[in-house]
Design a protein around this nucleic acid. Sequence first.
DNA 1: TTGTATGCGTTATCAT
DNA 2: ATGATAACGCATACAA
Lengths: 354, 354
Amino acid sequence: MATIRDVARVAGVSIATVSRVFNNHTLVNPETASRVLEVASQLEYWPNGAAQSLTTRRTHTLGVMLPELFGEFYSEVIRGIDRESRAHDYQILLSSSHSNGEEVLIAGRAMLGRIDGLIMMAPDEASIETVERVRRRVPVVLLNPRIEVEGCCSVAFENFSGARAAVEHLVGLGHNDIALITGPQGNVDAEERARGFRRALADAGLDPDAALVIPGDFRESAGYEAGVAILARRPRPTAVFAANDCMAVGLLAALRAAGRRVPRDIAVVGFDDIAMAAYLNPPLTTVRVDACGLGQQAVELMMGAMEAGATGGSVRQLLPAVLTVRQSCGAASAGTGYLEEAAGGAGPVRRGRK
Amino acid sequence: MATIRDVARVAGVSIATVSRVFNNHTLVNPETASRVLEVASQLEYWPNGAAQSLTTRRTHTLGVMLPELFGEFYSEVIRGIDRESRAHDYQILLSSSHSNGEEVLIAGRAMLGRIDGLIMMAPDEASIETVERVRRRVPVVLLNPRIEVEGCCSVAFENFSGARAAVEHLVGLGHNDIALITGPQGNVDAEERARGFRRALADAGLDPDAALVIPGDFRESAGYEAGVAILARRPRPTAVFAANDCMAVGLLAALRAAGRRVPRDIAVVGFDDIAMAAYLNPPLTTVRVDACGLGQQAVELMMGAMEAGATGGSVRQLLPAVLTVRQSCGAASAGTGYLEEAAGGAGPVRRGRK
DNA sequence: TTGTATGCGTTATCAT
DNA sequence: ATGATAACGCATACAA
């Protein structure tokens, strides 16, 4: 594996010159440069990244720590991060599925010296120590943080108001017995959405504590099981808010299996607006959230933070979560759902493209 | 930011000793060790990754190059890679969405010196040069390669036989006018699945060239549009093979919108068996493929290759793609689909867990 | 425009 | 059991 020295020797120049050529630094004699490049390509030389980071103290790499990634949502977040990073000439060091604070700490340590910044999703109490530690060395951007950390930028969805809008929609349609299928315990998004649910009920003069709340885990199977439980409940709720779309899909299946019609017998609203939502039966009314955009925003914030260094303030950004009415609630504004959206030929809005 | 030297100085030992402590190398005097550890934690010292890689020539990092990642499938692949990597104490340097050979080359170069191995998905002609280049320095594992590269291990799904089985299923049900919705042009999986489609038709005495083939792109919208086209065709095909489940979802929506019943009026079979497939209406007959397992296998192969060095042969592994009959084709073996699977309480098989 | 020399933070070799 | 010191591959201040 050729090093800068090999190239220098063969090309008959010093290593400094080779280095200059590869960093198009100060003006190098064009002839010298082309000769160096020629030799380099023959030797298949390319600067060693580790050595470069050591001297420059920059790695051109962003650390990304995510929770266990299920379904399309996280995939979109990663896509947004990846896309935007590459646009800024950065790479991504990925680490996910940490079940406890200890693992997070280990992962964080392993990243030290290999990253110029860290993007961390949904940090909980157990991860705060790691965040603080890392923060003293490189900028940190938090995604949907449970707790804001001083000196850290953050991007989050308006989970609370999005959920509230969804439930208000249900209330506005005349429902007063609304069930909730929650996300996994300890998940920030899930908790915020549950909070929005309760607030909307309270605002409507309904008692949140009287509502049927079924614990879920963001997966289809949980939605299905919740559906079975809801159907068994007397009196039976007339509407259900599923904390994400995957669970809504499971729920719809359970209702269908029991012969219930949606929205006639029971209304359903989801959250996320995954690509499939518009194509379900019936097209799912849900809360749209731009997962890819979240990732992109995080990277942009990171670029700003790296630019500013320690002097920069910490930006807290909120991304909208907007109610998208289709047919699963029997909307007053009887939109035709996917028919309308897809008929144009392009199908539902392609999300996440800038 | 404290270095090994700071720790050595404060603890009153040499840097060599500190290094030994952190690598639990040769036996160090327990007292000395604990003193070093104490100082290190006070100084918040942790070894610099870049410096370590430079001397040890190991980065404990695996490079991962993927195509544009859409939908749940790629998310699962990443999950498998991430999970298995961490089990082996490796990190992941991720790079995706390369539209041409030039970008792949740049990404590959940026990884040089930062990775111990490269896992590359669906390399095409344009990427072969990069693969060859990288291969001379670190082991490379190919995922669903279009072309096998000498000296590279590879893991692939039995796309061809899986697709053939799907279409044979349709033929066995009496269909003789079967349409195909393809994946994106240039996608290896898509092409293999198309090949399986054609072969199954030919084997059944049907003319592949006479079949309706509609170009798609693996997304829901393409499936929807294809559905519209299929319904307009005279004579109308009685069955459709969608090259992946997302498109099948779009197709189902289009059929529903037109008032066609599945499978009564038209049969549908997909590919991938995403988590949602069992919860669709009707539950989707599809070809199951373990995306997460693909990622895991790739990492295991990589570990073997790194162990063996240049001496190891190259393993070619094939992962099964098995037809999973639910209700969208009106199966002869009238399985009850999700009802059956989900009734147990655990829902459809949780995939990707080892 | 080009070369020399130093340092980046480690690990590892060889003494002691 | 511990210390001194030479790599590792590169960037850069300084000298020429």
